[in-house]
Structures are given as C-alpha cells and as structure tokens.
Amino acid sequence: NNYKSLYQSISIFDEVHIEKVEWKSVQQCSAFVVNQTIDLDGLFNDFNHIKSKYIDLKERFGGISKQVESFILSNLGRSNYNGTSVNHETSSCDDCNLQDNLDDIDVSDDEPDVKNKHKKTNKSIRSDHLWAYLLDGEHAPSLRKLVDFVFAIPGSNAFCESVFSHMKYLWNNNRTKMQHDLVGAELKIKMNTHLTCTELYDYLLTKPNILNKIRSSDKY
C-alpha cells in the first residue's frame, strides 16, 4: 500500500499540463521525501510561481513544446535530444473522401486549404524536460528538491543492470588492484558524461588537479 501511494503521488509530475496539477497533490508527494527537509511554505510559493510561469509561457514563442525543445537542444545537442513528435493525421481513406467532397466544391485560390484544417500536429514533450526548462534559472529550492527526488526514482532496474555490465569490462582480471572508489568514479564518468574521447581529453588538460591525481599512485 505504501508503494502504491508513492507511485500515485509522484505520477502528478508526469503531467505536462502544469495548470492541472493541484497544490494538495504536490503536498502529498512531499511527504514521501524523508532524507531531506522540505519547507512546505517555501514549496507552496515555489509551486505557484512555476505554475504561473508555465501558464504565461505555454502559448508564447511558438508554444511550450518549441521552447522546451530549444532549451534541451541548447544544453544537450541535437544528437542527444530524445523528444517525441506525434502526428495525428486523418487516414488515407478519409483523405480520399475529403478530396472527393472538395472536388464537388468550387474553392478559389484565395481561400485557405480546407484539407489542411483536418490535419492536426501535436508536439509531445517529456515531463522531465519540461520541469528542467521551467526550473532553469529560478530560485525555487523547495520545489527543486521535490522534482529531483521524483525523477531520481528509476522506472525499472534496467539502468542498474547496465551499470553491472559496464563494470564487468572495467574491473577485469588485468585491473584487480583497483579500489572501489576508482571503479565508482570510472562508472560515473562512463554512465553520465556526454563528452567524446577528444572532448574529455581537452577538458582534462584544463584541470591540473585532476591531472596530478592521474599521475599519482593514489588511484590504485
């Protein structure tokens, strides 16, 4: 029952229409955060501020979907963007029937394309991308804690299993003297960085402290 209540509670953050999210649902969700202290008054203020921001932005600049996509692309790059486009179009048969009806109607060149009015395109967005965009640059510490807690919960154990697969190749018979901290550090880099080998090399050249650690024997 506790797990059921938890999953029902955190499901509100999967909602991309933020105006539908109610304060009481956010408050219930915050009750499951036991390892951090969340100020409810601050959370209330943060939530209402972000909700107002969403309502203000959702119809501007080409819609909230375009804003979120631009934000994610500017931070991750197009190759790492995992947005989803969902096109809801009429079927080919419906198009044929519509075209037959249009043939019977005298439509001038000045009138809009009636057929295109029957096609709808809905750009869907990921809820974690939306919250990242809304919280970017905002001082909302209480809400940020709650959002971090919710999206840190994995949907399955697939990610954990993939970590063990990567560890098998890092901690092999030729590297048995590695300490746990080193294995953990390598896994964190491997699983969380988006840098190529060349980019990581260039980055390390700008970090003398890390280079000194690499040259030392502390890593073993």
Score class of each variant (00 low, 15 high):
residue 2 N to P: 00
residue 5 S to Y: 02
residue 5 S to L: 10
residue 8 Q to G: 06
residue 11 S to D: 07
residue 16 V to L: 05
residue 18 I to Q: 11
residue 20 K to N: 13
residue 22 E to G: 02
residue 24 K to A: 08
residue 27 Q to E: 09
residue 28 Q to I: 03
residue 31 A to N: 07
residue 32 F to D: 06
residue 34 V to E: 14
residue 36 Q to S: 10
residue 38 I to N: 03
residue 38 I to V: 07
residue 39 D to C: 10
residue 43 L to Y: 02
residue 48 N to S: 00
residue 52 S to M: 05
residue 55 I to L: 11
residue 55 I to G: 03
residue 56 D to H: 12
residue 57 L to V: 05
residue 57 L to R: 10
residue 59 E to K: 15
residue 60 R to W: 01
residue 64 I to V: 13
residue 66 K to F: 00
residue 70 S to W: 03
residue 72 I to W: 05
residue 74 S to T: 07
residue 81 Y to D: 09
residue 84 T to G: 04
residue 86 V to D: 10
residue 87 N to I: 06
residue 88 H to M: 11
residue 89 E to R: 14
residue 90 T to P: 04
residue 90 T to M: 14
residue 98 L to E: 08
residue 99 Q to W: 01
residue 102 L to E: 08
residue 105 I to W: 02
residue 109 D to L: 13
residue 115 K to I: 09
residue 116 N to T: 13
residue 119 K to G: 00
residue 119 K to I: 11
residue 120 K to C: 06
residue 121 T to C: 03
residue 121 T to I: 08
residue 121 T to W: 00
residue 126 R to I: 00
residue 127 S to W: 01
residue 129 H to C: 02
residue 131 W to I: 04
residue 134 L to V: 07
residue 134 L to R: 04
residue 138 E to I: 07
residue 141 P to S: 01
residue 142 S to I: 01
residue 143 L to H: 04
residue 143 L to M: 05
residue 148 D to T: 14
residue 150 V to G: 07
residue 151 F to S: 11
residue 153 I to H: 03
residue 153 I to L: 10
residue 154 P to E: 02
residue 156 S to V: 04
residue 161 E to G: 01
residue 163 V to M: 14
residue 167 M to G: 08
residue 168 K to R: 15
residue 168 K to W: 02
residue 170 L to A: 05
residue 171 W to E: 13
residue 171 W to Y: 15
residue 172 N to A: 10
residue 172 N to E: 06
residue 173 N to K: 15
residue 173 N to E: 12
residue 174 N to Q: 11
residue 175 R to Y: 01
residue 175 R to T: 07
residue 178 M to H: 02
residue 178 M to C: 01
residue 182 L to Y: 01
residue 184 G to C: 07
residue 185 A to K: 12
residue 190 K to F: 04
residue 192 N to I: 00
residue 192 N to V: 00
residue 193 T to C: 14
residue 197 C to V: 10
residue 198 T to E: 11
residue 198 T to I: 03
residue 199 E to M: 12
residue 200 L to T: 13
residue 200 L to H: 06
residue 203 Y to I: 08
residue 204 L to P: 04
residue 204 L to F: 05
residue 205 L to I: 08
residue 207 K to L: 10
residue 208 P to N: 11
residue 208 P to Q: 09
residue 210 I to P: 00
residue 215 R to P: 00
residue 216 S to V: 03
residue 216 S to N: 05
residue 217 S to E: 12
residue 218 D to F: 00
residue 218 D to R: 12
